[in-house]
Computed example of a mutant assay.
Amino acid sequence: MRILGREPAVIIGIISAVLSLIVTFGVGLTTDQAGAIVALITALFAAATAAMTRPIAPAAFTGVIAAAVALLAAYHFNVAPETVGSLNAVVLSVLVFLTRGQVSPAVVKAPVEPAGPSAV
């Protein structure tokens, strides 16, 4: 299945990022509220991505890590942005290393034409 010619996980990721960015403007929200909402958005969209991809584990694990980091930042756990970026890079690298052999692109099969009378 493709949406606008792209994999659904890509579209879900873009929507999640845009919504998270909008929330960070914090119009009418405290910093804690905005952080909690970003964590919720991250978790929900990660669950949607995991549901649409196979195997599920890499997307689910990445989503859990991203949501946990967002919650830690929301509740004033001092995590430097560089550390968050590095943590995400390490997690993604390890997941790619562990799962790449188990993941392959979907094979699209050509439609089969119905058998009809032959012109022999």
Rank of each mutant, 00 (worst) to 15 (best):
M1T: 12
R2A: 15
L4R: 07
L4N: 09
L4G: 09
L4I: 12
R6M: 15
E7H: 15
A9Y: 08
I11Q: 02
I11R: 01
G13W: 05
I14S: 02
I14T: 03
I15L: 05
I15Y: 02
I15W: 01
S16L: 06
A17C: 08
A17Y: 03
V18E: 01
V18G: 04
V18I: 07
V18Q: 05
L19I: 07
L19Y: 06
L19K: 02
L21Y: 06
I22T: 00
T24N: 11
T24F: 12
T24Y: 09
T24G: 11
V27P: 05
G28P: 00
G28I: 06
G28N: 04
G28E: 00
L29T: 02
L29I: 01
T30F: 05
T30K: 00
T31Q: 11
T31S: 12
T31L: 11
T31H: 06
D32F: 10
D32S: 10
Q33F: 03
Q33W: 05
Q33E: 10
A34V: 00
G35E: 03
I37H: 04
I37L: 01
A39Q: 02
A39N: 02
L40N: 04
L40E: 03
L40R: 02
L40C: 02
T42S: 01
A43M: 01
A43T: 03
L44D: 04
L44N: 03
F45L: 05
F45T: 00
F45D: 01
A48S: 05
A48E: 06
A48D: 03
A51N: 12
T53C: 05
T53Y: 05
R54M: 10
R54A: 09
R54S: 11
R54V: 11
I56T: 14
I56C: 11
I56Q: 12
A57E: 07
A57M: 07
A60N: 03
A60K: 03
A60T: 05
F61L: 13
F61I: 13
F61R: 02
V64K: 04
A67E: 04
A68S: 07
A70V: 07
L71C: 02
L71A: 07
L71M: 05
L72P: 03
L72E: 02
A73D: 13
H76S: 12
H76M: 09
V79R: 05
V79I: 15
A80I: 10
A80F: 10
P81Q: 08
G85P: 02
N88K: 11
A89F: 11
A89D: 07
V90E: 05
V90C: 10
V90A: 13
V90T: 08
V91N: 07
L92H: 13
S93A: 15
S93F: 15
V94L: 14
V94F: 10
V94T: 13
L95K: 01
L95T: 12
L95R: 07
V96W: 10
F97G: 06
F97N: 06
F97P: 01
L98Y: 13
L98W: 13
T99A: 13
V103E: 14
V103Q: 14
S104F: 15
P105V: 10
P105Y: 07
A106H: 06
A106I: 13
V108P: 03
V108C: 04
K109A: 14
P111I: 08
V112N: 07
E113L: 14
E113N: 12
E113K: 13
P114F: 15
A115E: 15
G116A: 10
P117I: 09
P117A: 12
P117Q: 13
S118Y: 09
S118K: 09
S118C: 08
V120N: 14
V120G: 14
